[in-house]
Amino acid sequence: MDPGVDKATGDAYWRRTSSLMWIMMAIWAIAGFGVHLFATSLNTIVILGFPLGFYMAAQGSLIIFVVSLFWFASRQNAIDEEFGVEEE
């Protein structure tokens, strides 16, 4: 943050950034562990010859990670613009 920014603005910026970080951590935990916990129950559904549990464990969680990274970058840029600390 700019040294000229007051403490209340800096605290508000950090609160928004911190809450976004915790949301991302929850998404990563659910995609990283939650999907794999239910993989065996999803194996009854078969798509293109592969059990859905196998596909979700191998590919689905990676897709969720990539999409969530783009969403995170977009949200963080919006927060940065709101508080006037965006990068060029």
Rank of each mutant, 00 (worst) to 15 (best):
Arg75Asn: 09
Ala8Pro: 08
Met1Ala: 09
Thr40Trp: 07
Ile23Gln: 10
Leu37Arg: 15
Thr17Pro: 03
Ser68His: 06
Leu69Tyr: 00
Phe50Met: 14
Ile47Lys: 08
Arg15Asp: 11
Val46Trp: 00
Glu87Met: 14
Glu86Asn: 08
Glu87Ser: 11
Phe33Gly: 13
Ala29Ile: 00
Gly10Cys: 06
Phe72Ile: 04
Met24Asp: 07
Glu81Pro: 02
Ala12Asp: 02
Asp2Ser: 09
Phe54Pro: 14
Gly32Ile: 05
Ala31Glu: 01
Leu42Lys: 03
Ala78Gln: 07
Leu48Thr: 09
Gly32Ser: 09
Gly60His: 06
Ser74Glu: 01
Ala31Asn: 10
Leu48Glu: 12
Val46Asp: 14
Gly84Ala: 03
Gly32Val: 01
Met24Pro: 06
Ala39Asn: 14
Ile45Cys: 10
Ser68Val: 03
Gly4Glu: 09
Pro51Gly: 13
Thr44Gly: 15
Asn77Trp: 01
Gly49Ala: 01
Pro51Cys: 02
Leu52His: 05
Leu37Thr: 08
Arg15Met: 10
Leu37Ser: 11
Phe83Arg: 07
Ala12Leu: 02
Ala73Asn: 12
Asn77Ile: 03
Phe54His: 12
Phe38His: 09
Ile63Trp: 00
Phe54Tyr: 11
Leu69Ala: 14
Glu82Val: 02
Ser68Gln: 09
Asp2Met: 03
Leu62Gly: 14
Ala31Leu: 01
Glu88Trp: 01
Gln76Asp: 04
Gln59Asp: 09
Trp14Ser: 08
Ile79Ser: 05
Asn77Lys: 15
Leu20Met: 12
Val85Tyr: 01
Gly4Trp: 00
His36Asn: 15
Ser18Lys: 11
Leu48Val: 08
Trp28Phe: 03
Phe50Gly: 12
Asp11Cys: 08
Gly84Leu: 01
Met56Cys: 10
Met25Ser: 13
Glu82Asn: 06
Ile30Pro: 11
Gly53Tyr: 02
Asp6Met: 05
Ala57Val: 05
Met25His: 08
Met21Ser: 15
Ser18Tyr: 08
Ser41Phe: 03
Gly60Thr: 02
Ser61Gln: 13
Met56Ser: 12
Phe72Pro: 10
Leu48His: 05
Phe33Ile: 05
Ser61Trp: 00
Glu88Gln: 11
Leu37Glu: 04
Thr44His: 07
Thr44Asp: 09
Glu81Arg: 14
Leu69Met: 11
Gly32Glu: 01
Leu69His: 10
Trp14Met: 09
Ser41Asn: 10
Ile47Tyr: 00
Pro3Val: 02
Pro3Arg: 04
Glu82His: 05
Ala57Leu: 07
Thr17Val: 11
Phe38Ile: 05
Asn77Val: 02
Asp80His: 12
Gln76Pro: 08
Asp80Glu: 07
Leu20Gly: 11
Met25Ile: 04
Phe72Met: 14
Phe33Asp: 00
Ala57Glu: 01
Ala73Ser: 13
Met24Glu: 04
Met21Leu: 15
Phe50Asn: 15
Ile23Ser: 13
Phe72Ala: 13
Gly34Tyr: 03
Gly49Lys: 06
Phe70Ala: 09
Lys7Pro: 03
Trp14Pro: 04
Ser74Gln: 06
Ala57Gln: 04
Phe72Glu: 07
Arg75Gln: 09
Trp71Ala: 14
His36Trp: 00
Ile27Gly: 04
Ser19Asp: 09
Glu86Cys: 04
Gly10Pro: 05
Ala58Gln: 13
Gln76Phe: 00
His36Ile: 05
Phe83Cys: 04
Pro3Leu: 02
Ala39His: 10
Trp22Lys: 15
Gly4Met: 13
Tyr13Cys: 01
Ala78Gly: 10
